[in-house]
Amino acid sequence: MVASAGSVPPLTFYATDDKTVIGVETDIAHLVADVLGLRVRAHAVDWANIFVGLDSGKYDVGFSNITVTEERKEKYDFATYRLDTISFEAKKGRGWKVKGPKDVAGRVIGVSSGTNQEKLLVDWSKQNVKAGREATDIKYFQNTSDYYLALGSGRIDAYLGPHPVAAHHALSTGKTEVIGSFSGRATGSRARSPRPRRRTTAW
């Protein structure tokens, strides 16, 4: 049983029948299953529910944009398969680039809750306030369609998410662009005291 985050092309999304889960991460799951002699049953769920399902034993593995952090390694086994890069996506032609914390001071930025992208924004906002700059106004979204609607209407200045998703959307629509990319691993949470781990895996 494989869990992956909702409709976020090209990583995971639904085919034209609106029920078959396809995408890069689904393809990788099938390749791994073929090698192991297993059969994939793919489920696209909200980001938070991947971990709920892994913890409860409902899902055997999570194939998604899951950054490897010390905190997560206390509970899950990982096998990495691509570079963990996160990117800011904004409307095209604004002439705005994000190179560090000061570039998001006073900006309205969308992000998904519970992600390393959120941690990066929160940390940067604190750095800005400490330096006497404006805090970042962080808005939370769980669905791709919701944050792209907010981006298109101007309710947010940019969205911070997985680079493949931002790059794919920018290329396919021609209306947005990637304005800054960073390593997801660099935003990892601090390790806590070790706890017994379930033998679950996040890919």
Results as ranks from 00 to 15, higher is better:
123 D>N: 09
64 S>P: 01
101 P>H: 07
88 F>I: 09
165 V>A: 03
61 V>T: 06
139 K>V: 10
70 E>M: 08
171 L>K: 15
118 E>A: 09
59 Y>V: 07
151 L>N: 02
144 T>I: 14
82 R>I: 03
134 E>S: 09
144 T>P: 01
70 E>H: 11
53 G>K: 12
52 V>C: 02
143 N>H: 13
133 R>K: 14
130 K>C: 02
96 W>Y: 09
100 G>N: 11
55 D>W: 13
168 H>A: 13
99 K>G: 13
61 V>S: 02
140 Y>E: 08
159 Y>L: 13
67 T>P: 02
63 F>E: 02
152 G>H: 11
65 N>E: 02
50 I>S: 05
135 A>R: 08
115 T>M: 07
159 Y>C: 07
140 Y>G: 05
94 R>N: 08
155 R>G: 08
65 N>P: 01
63 F>Q: 01
113 S>P: 04
145 S>D: 14
135 A>L: 04
89 E>A: 13
110 G>K: 04
136 T>M: 04
158 A>N: 01
44 A>F: 09
44 A>K: 05
151 L>R: 01
113 S>H: 09
137 D>V: 06
45 V>K: 05
139 K>S: 07
88 F>A: 11
138 I>S: 06
170 A>M: 10
74 E>G: 10
101 P>D: 05
154 G>D: 07
129 V>F: 11
47 W>H: 11
44 A>Q: 05
164 P>C: 09
150 A>G: 06
111 V>W: 00
47 W>A: 14
75 K>D: 01
129 V>P: 09
97 K>Q: 12
74 E>P: 00
115 T>V: 09
59 Y>D: 01
143 N>P: 03
163 H>G: 03
127 Q>L: 12
104 V>L: 08
108 V>S: 05
171 L>N: 14
56 S>H: 13
73 K>L: 11
91 K>N: 13
131 A>M: 10
127 Q>H: 03
73 K>P: 00
158 A>I: 06
130 K>M: 02
152 G>Y: 11
45 V>L: 06
129 V>I: 15
129 V>M: 14
125 S>D: 11
64 S>D: 09
